[in-house]
Nucleic acid binder design. Structure first.
Lengths: 229, 229
DNA sequence: CAGTGGTCTAGACCACCAT
DNA sequence: TGGTGGTCTAGACCACTGC
């Protein structure tokens, strides 16, 4: 069996975690490493490229490769559909449409999504339940200029997120997390007290430079978002 | 100029975003694509592999490659050091140690970090200020069995996070986000009202299977964590 | 079983950039 | 300007897995 890029990557990573290659230290060049490991340079290259992508090492032409002083700590989060999220918990998912209205986009939304004046938008309010208990409150705006079909969908059975995923092939997005205080309305929807701290996700989605949708997802009391890295 | 893997990746991605390759559709195999694009199979392979890593397409031996039905939505978050985070904002950073005590690890911590009975830990409480205003409250526990040197550091000038980054070469971690309600102590430290909603990050760090540290970072009122993807 | 992706190789050219 | 990483090529073998 020949030496794989996984072997090389694991070995180098071990040398780093065990302090044999301390932060800031320079590493041999690819040609030398290839000789050491008895493999092709391309194999070393792939191992090193992945370590660089992972933020463990830093590479620069001519300057060579060094172990990062402070590893770039980054984490990947999956952004699940609510339905999947709930069903993964082993709970039964239920969706409910609370309100639906097509109207002129309010000023704050126009500003936030860079919509043209007089843009029309579809405003939806929905609830997602896990085993009958409130799980997530969804407050969504859909840009009707980009998604005219949305106006002919009543969203009574299926949530707008699932519809959008199917309708918009691929898109860029900005996501942000914050803590908010439950106002009277949210407290009632989510079955908690007014003033409770709730975890909220906001997401803006774009398709070929044009705003598709803006959504504010407020989770039930005590919700946590977790990941490993 | 030859065809680069970036060219191939961009072209395929364009075909997907423009609906030419709709979700769920099968794509040609690598050999055919290489002929189409007039490049080597390895070039196509790298383009496709990156698209798969990005969650755009799905690849299986023998079954071939298809555009994902629902793109795997995932986001990468940078986990910055507080100092960097604040200085990036253009503000002046200040650190203050509030409390420091070496003691037997409390039961909940032993359970959470899987520490041995009678494990000792260093408990630190710190504050981080941006332009003199409270920015983040840090409540940290360091496992003295793994980091005995920590006991001889008074952490008066430098925060434990910066020390740990330098002392522990590399590590695995679990991170979680949630919203919490400010109790009297937090409210006072962060200069907000009792009962306010605050954004909190918890992180557990491991080195070679052993717990290194547990930290609870509570941000000032209104803090947002944002990323693009 | 046979088609597809996963990976390695040996060699080559080139862009970048520290010195 | 020379060393280093970035990438492409053409060919090869193999692991996986749907048929």
């Amino acid at each position: 069996m020949s030496v794989t890029y996984r072997d090389v990557k694991a070995d180098i990573l071990a040398k780093i975690t065990q302090g044999e290659l301390p932060p800031g230290s320079a590493m041999p060049n690819e040609v030398d490493l290839a000789v050491d490991y008895g493999c092709a340079r391309a194999t070393v290259n792939r191992a090193m490229r992945e370590l660089a992508d992972d933020g463990i090492i830093e590479r620069r032409r001519k300057a060579g490769t060094r172990v990062r002083m402070a590893p770039v700590r980054q984490a990947r989060f999956g952004i699940p559909l609510v339905r999947q999220e709930i069903e993964t918990l082993g709970a039964t998912y239920r969706y409910a449409l609370v309100a639906r209205a097509a109207l002129a986009a309010p000023d704050w939304l126009r500003a936030r999504l860079a919509l043209e004046p007089k843009a029309r938008a579809l405003h939806l309010t929905c609830m997602h339940y896990a085993d009958g208990m409130p799980y997530q409150h969804e407050d969504r705006w859909i840009n009707l200029a980009v998604n005219p079909d949305a106006e002919y969908n009543d969203f009574a059975e299926t949530g707008p997120n699932e519809w959008l995923v199917a309708a918009v092939p691929f898109s860029n997005a900005e996501i942000s997390f914050q803590a908010v205080t439950a106002d009277a309305a949210l407290a009632e929807y989510l079955g908690c007290g007014t003033g409770e701290a709730l975890f909220q996700v906001e997401r803006m989605t774009w398709w070929e430079g044009r705003a598709v949708t803006f959504v504010r997802l407020t989770h039930r009391r005590g919700h946590r978002m977790t990941t490993q890295y």
